[in-house]
Write a protein that binds this DNA or RNA. Structure first.
Lengths: 214, 214
DNA sequence: TGAGTATATGGCAGTGACTGCCAAGTTGGC
DNA sequence: GCCAACTTGGCAGTCACTGCCATATACTCA
């Protein structure tokens, strides 16, 4: 799975990543300007200086171009998987990973700004929200596998799946609120919103622990 | 919003609902037989005895035809909204609604069978899973509004949203497991799986209540 | 009951996403 | 500096989806 990290990053690979990035930027800008539905692949390709045919060799759909993942994001996910594989408790580990990402936003405003732009577009179109969810689902599999492996023989896959799904859902709410507030001129911090949500979920937590024996 | 329930159900409306149902059935059968991607709208339309052009007057996309909602489902959602509007605690009310639906499955095997067929198709394609999530999000709005209204002045919209999203995520896991087990020949009961999941989530619940003050 | 109006249907043409195939260039290893 | 591997762009084709128009069917009210 993650075996080709050691491959020599030649000219080809470097160019590929560059193009990937340029296409993603072109797409993001056009989506913001005129909306996703009103933006054609031809336009994105033209803006990025490639042919439409080539566009589809970089991203399978125009929506995918929006979800180009930056390094920070990926590395935090890898770290999370490693932590869980090393035996960390699932829910706290997930929480820790997100807090780390949000803290990163404070240190690196460029990343924060870009993620916010992307999230704003995502929230504006249901189809993109759907695509974001499939992304979450795909990412979740890796994490679920790690948790199952870590638990060994007495792994409770069902509970693991439910835990990851619930945490993902909560994060999606956080991002949604982040966008909403920022659109109201509120220079909201994602980390703060996350903490607010967690604090508010105490009753749900109580409900879940209480009904366990039911 | 729900003001046109009193409209007289004339021939037109009756036929419309019939067609809606026939198209949904045709789509479901074809999706099962050859997969969603390999099924064209033309084929669904032909199987349902309407023109392709008319198909799009009933459902905006072929995927939507799969999510045709039956009465039971809708009525339980309406009840839930009413309960919440009447002041019921959110998480328990949601749980209660689902348990009621699952109990209904035991009483009405036809409904159970159809939901299982639909869910099986949904689980087979990530894009459908995503569409299911966006559906849930759409449905959630009504419930969220009810909860906000019920809470009055001190409504915590953010927490309400998070609670609903988390519960929805859990239900999706239940459906997923239900399909998985039934495909393994296990005549699983959705209600039982739901109870299993809730029991397993005690640690998550503890985590959420513990970190509230953090 | 017989207009008259609103609505449902189907066909046609058009746009845009996406794919397979082929020809022409580019890069990397030796 | 040459061969093999890979990248690119153009072309043709399929399919989802929409707007427009003519025709048919259901509701309404005089």
């Amino acid at each position: 799975m993650t075996s080709d990290d050691s491959a020599p990053v030649g000219l080809r690979e470097r160019r590929r990543r560059e193009t990937l990035r340029e296409v993603a930027d072109a797409a993001l800008t056009l989506f913001e300007e005129r909306g996703v539905a009103a933006t054609t692949v031809d336009e994105i390709a033209a803006a990025a200086g490639i042919s439409p045919r080539t566009f589809f060799r970089y991203y399978p759909t125009k929506e995918h171009a929006l979800f180009h993942e930056d390094e920070t994001y990926r590395s935090i996910r890898v770290e999370l998987v490693n932590d869980v594989r090393a035996g960390a408790a699932l829910a706290p580990a997930i929480q820790h990973a997100w807090v780390r990402l949000f803290d990163d936003f404070d240190r690196r405003p460029d990343i924060r700004a870009r993620v916010l732009r992307v999230r704003r577009v995502i929230e504006s179109e249901p189809t993109l929200l759907a695509r974001a969810v499939t992304n979450d689902i795909d990412n979740a599999d890796e994490l679920i596998d790690a948790a199952v492996d870590a638990a060994g023989a007495d792994a409770d896959v069902l509970t693991i799946r439910a835990t990851v799904a619930a945490m993902d859902a909560i994060i999606r709410v956080v991002f949604g609120e982040w966008v909403r507030r920022s659109e109201l001129g509120d220079a909201a911090s994602a980390g703060e919103i996350y903490r607010e949500v967690i604090a508010g979920l105490a009753p749900l937590g109580a409900h879940l622990s209480r009904d366990a024996g039911n």
